[in-house]
Write a protein that binds this DNA or RNA. Structure first.
Lengths: 331, 331
DNA sequence: GTGAAAGCGCTAACAG
DNA sequence: CTGTTAGCGCTTTCAC
């Protein structure tokens, strides 16, 4: 793009400064001038250079959404994608654009942490290590943690009530009269895994049901793994009457295994999932699951990050969004 | 970030240029020097400013993935999200980062088209109007069209064999002996809609089956709309024995309607979808569908765009990825 | 409301 | 292998 602000200035007879203002703050320029400037710009097909602008303003109006590498792919992840979408919307509303990258992009060849790209702040989604966050903070790069919580000063974290959700799911099953309830848990980050696992154990304890470890399995959260795992559980002589799956993908795999075994849902086996992803409504019967307010998580993370960018450092805080049980047809 | 390259230069006793090289092209600097520079950088917590770098290099190493607004949300779209993911991967491999934005971001308040953000090229996904593409080209902004084709010089388009896919699906149904085949078509862009519709008509003609317009419906591509539409078709006295749905979401809605009507798939009604989205394997029975090579589409679009960025304008070309039928359990 | 001038932080010749 | 120098294109005081 060879044509610069100077070319426009020359053509319309005004100065660089006026042309600049016509684009950046149109209200500071008289109507007549603005029109002339725009006409000249159109004639030359001039377009302000975003980089030069960012350089001098010290602001890019970009935000980075950084995913822990292991959790790739983001966009296809039924849990993260609605969150990402919500972040995207919120950013757009506030005039920010969104970069998407993995945590690999956060390190220089010499090992230092930094934001190699042009962004005013970052949302770190999923796992992220403390040193990285510290480094970023030290470089005055606003940071918000999403679906993760770290105990650091001035760090804002947005999570959800993992434990409460598990308890909701389990109590619901217990109220339906289930006692032999299996757990198929995805091997998520310890933070998430333990909270959901504890919910399972605590409700079992509440109803006086001892834990049968043959009914507690930890797997990769894929449909295939869930099918295999469930099939095994179904072959038990005293098979469970209900399954609590720690995400919807697992629950869908469990459903497949049950249906393929010729059993009925929920009559023979009841199933509860977690996340309330889009997929939970795709399957038939539709899945009872714990709703996580992914829209709120994304929105809050983005809003709080933007607040930091525009108004300075955050207070240390963990914002926990509510969960609720969505009862559909699998229980 | 108050600390600049100059601070590091002073601290380590080298010049700005050397410090710059230590980060930008480490091999051009002696080991000893590099270590000293890095040490100083670490001490000051210095990090190169990506904006200033981009400014002087005239390159940002960023690519924009721009979606036609009406097709929002991108990330949740079962068709676009795998493509986006593939673009993301390819860009990462080549050292580019990805921006995601809608076509709204392509226009200045004065109506001019431009890339307001810092990117070296853009992938325009879905519908995009010709003037926008022309404007971008005139500004020397490399462009690739994805899932769309426009007849413009030096414009590279990546699409798929929409018509061929429809023919594959229909012939498959015909080979299974179906004659009364319904069409439930999503109201996609004319480009896509017509190709798939023509495939339907042509195969019916091949098998000497007149088109019954009660069996041809055009709807919003949502599960709900598909359920409603299918229910209606099922209530016909001479209901179809098979349904060709122009995407998987519609097919899944159709499946729900069929199952809820107490009918069996594929015994009573066979169903074929289009896209081979992740969802097609989630449902039970699993969906027979036309596979679109979304990974290839994303990769090719990204690679070609990068080629343009690095090696100059493209030849006018429409690259059409192959389709194939994936026969699962609904036919 | 408009213009002149001073950089923003970095890289890329070119020299040495 | 390292240093010097000249900007990249824009915004932003500060005058007028």
């Amino acid at each position: 793009m060879a044509v610069t602000i100077l070319d426009v200035a020359k053509l319309c007879g005004y100065s660089k400064a006026t042309v600049s203002r016509a684009f950046a703050c149109p209200e500071q320029v008289s109507d007549k001038t603005r029109e002339k400037v725009y006409a000249a710009a159109r004639a030359l097909n001039y377009t302000p250079d975003a980089i030069a602008r960012a350089m001098v303003r010290g602001r890019t109006d970009n935000i980075g959404f950084v995913i822990y590498e292991k959790q790739y792919p983001v966009v296809l992840n039924p849990f993260y994608s609605p969150i990402f979408e919500s972040v995207l919307q919120t950013c757009a509303q506030h005039g920010y654009s969104l970069f998407i990258s993995s945590d690999r992009d956060l390190h220089l060849p010499n090992g230092q942490t930094c934001v190699k790209k042009q962004m005013d702040g970052v949302i770190l989604a999923g796992h992220s290590d403390m040193q990285t966050v510290l480094d970023l903070q030290q470089q005055n790069m606003p940071v918000v943690l999403l679906n993760n919580a770290l105990d650091l000063d001035h760090l804002l974290c947005v999570t959800t009530d993992q434990y409460g959700g598990a308890v909701l799911a389990m109590r619901h099953l217990a109220e339906r009269g289930h006692r032999r309830i299996g757990l198929i848990a995805g091997n998520f980050s310890p933070h998430v895994y333990m909270a959901r696992y504890n919910g399972y154990c605590d409700v079992l304890r509440e109803i006086g049901q001892p834990i049968d470890f043959r009914l507690v399995q930890s797997i990769e959260p894929t449909v295939e793994a869930a099918i295999a795992c469930t099939s095994l559980m179904l072959s038990l002589s005293d098979r469970p009457t209900a399954l609590f799956c720690t995400n919807d993908t697992i629950a869908i795999g469990a459903m497949k295994a049950v249906l393929r075994a010729g059993l009925c849902i929920p009559e023979d086996i009841a199933i509860v999932g977690f996340d309330d992803s889009e997929n939970s409504r795709l399957v038939e019967p539709e899945l009872t699951t714990v709703h996580i307010d992914k829209v709120a998580m994304g929105r809050i993370a983005a809003e709080r990050l933007i607040a930091q960018i525009e108004q300075g450092p955050a207070e240390k805080q963990v914002i926990q969004t509510d969960v609720r049980l969505i009862v559909r047809q699998t229980t």
